[in-house]
Amino acid sequence: MTSARAEHLARCHACGLATQLPACPPGHSLHCPRCDSELHLRKPHSLSRTWALLIAAYLMYIPANLLPVSTIVYMGNGEPDTIISGVMYLFKNGDAPVALLLFIASIAVPFMKLVVLTWLTLCVKFKVRWRPRDRTVIYRVVEGIGRWSMLDIFVIALLVAMVQLQALATIHAGPGAVAFCSVVVLTMFAAESFDPRLMWDSFEES
């Protein structure tokens, strides 16, 4: 069997129906007969959209790690924490499992996601044929795991909600949290705009 594209069949990205496209492209856009979504053989401008989102995510990654994500004001003294200093503090104070969890969700996963998506996009760009099946699995994992990076944002929201004892102690969010949240959202969009079928197309073009 061949790919759907070789048969001029477009798989609807919303409902999955394979629709026959006319041999010569018409001037107007084509829509799915079942759900009316616009039909494309591949996600439109997949690579350039993924690049744009990845570059934006790399840029936001810098303030996300340098600026404080939260500030604990205790007895009038403010103590700002970045993502890394927060994890280090937990490690030193004997909460190793929680520190490890936050390390994975806030540091390892976003970084891995940026690196892996960059690598996958480069592989497509240079028509690399290395283990497409494994790369497809890696893409699925990266796409599915990204949402867990929101963990730190939820922790900050909950701490801010719980600790509002004006005179004694308060916790406030910091600008780093906004940058970090945007990294999570941008990489989620980047993973979504990447079309895994492009990894398989180089096998048919020769």
């Binding site: 969890l101 949402r147 867990w148 963990l151 939820f154 909950l158 719980m162």
Partner: peptide, 20 residues
Amino acid sequence: KVWAMMEVFLLGVIVSAIKL
């Protein structure tokens, strides 16, 4: 579907309870 993150939120509840 991907934007509904209740299970991640629950993990956040556990982490913040341990922190507090």
